[in-house]
């Protein structure tokens, strides 16, 4: 049952417990989180703290052992396949390494969801693909294969693919990981533009301090599979807590 605090949230997670095997210790243990429409939320924490697992649990890739996961007001794991597909068309996901389909061109990747889920004719799909590629700085790359792109270009292409159906929520897993600071900053700027101009709710998993600073949104910090901080980035930076201090001012 949805509690009043969870009502109206685009993402609502309550007492979430996730484990990768029946007898394995939980990776997430009692995580509770609610995200408002249009917000920018950074999920942060050290390696192995469960950030990516939380993201995967929210988007339906890792079924929870216990707890509630609601996406856009629907209990994702309880929906029939057709309803679940309809719901997933309202969210976009940018994976850590892009996860571009290697057998399709960049253009085919970006246009795939449009082609498969709408009645858009090929000419329209092509124009939308071109528009998105231009927006992410990849104009003219539609006919290239993902393997021909650099890491940063692949992530930008993945962003274009994730945005092709104009999702209400965009999930990003480590958008700046492995990129040079300039490219990483470029991707963050793109994300903020989408948030400001299209009111896309952003949920970004990251451990990059600069990225957290640039996105300047709400900060949810995980440690050992639990939420240890939930507040603004500015407050976290000055909070007199040794765990936060260690994260923001590592010595």
């Amino acid at each position: 049952m949805t509690s009043p605090a969870m009502a109206g949230k685009v993402v609502a997670v309550r007492d979430l417990q996730v484990a990768y095997a029946e007898d394995a210790p939980p990776v997430l243990d009692g995580v509770t989180l609610a995200v408002d429409r249009g917000d920018v939320t950074c999920i942060v924490g050290g390696s192995g703290c469960g950030k990516s697992t939380l993201l995967k649990a929210i988007i339906g890739l890792v079924p929870p052992r216990a707890g509630l996961v609601q996406l856009l007001g629907e209990s994702l794991y309880e929906l029939a396949e057709d309803n679940r597909d309809s719901l997933l068309q309202r969210v976009g996901v940018m994976f850590q390494y892009g996860a571009m389909l290697g057998s399709l061109t960049v253009g085919e990747n970006v246009g795939l969801a449009l082609q498969m889920h709408t009645s858009a004719e090929p000419g329209l799909v092509q124009d939308v693909v071109d528009a998105w590629l231009e927006r992410v700085g990849l104009a003219g790359s539609a006919n290239r294969m993902p393997s021909e792109l650099s890491g940063g270009m692949r992530k930008r292409a993945a962003l274009a693919r994730a945005m092709a159906l104009e999702p209400e929520i965009l999930f990003c897993d480590e958008p700046g990981a492995g990129l040079d600071p300039i490219t990483a900053a470029g991707i963050d700027r793109l994300l903020l533009t989408l948030n400001e101009r299209q009111a896309t709710t952003l949920i970004v998993v990251t451990h990059e301090l600069l990225s957290i600073e640039r996105l300047d949104g709400r900060l949810v910090m995980l440690d050992g599979g639990r939420v240890i901080y939930d507040g603004t980035a500015q407050e976290a930076r000055v909070a007199a807590r040794s765990d936060l201090e260690l994260f923001f001012h590592p010595r």
Partner: peptide, 8 residues
Amino acid sequence: DALRTMAL
């Protein structure tokens, strides 16, 4: 996973 999240 990417296909799943694209409702495919």
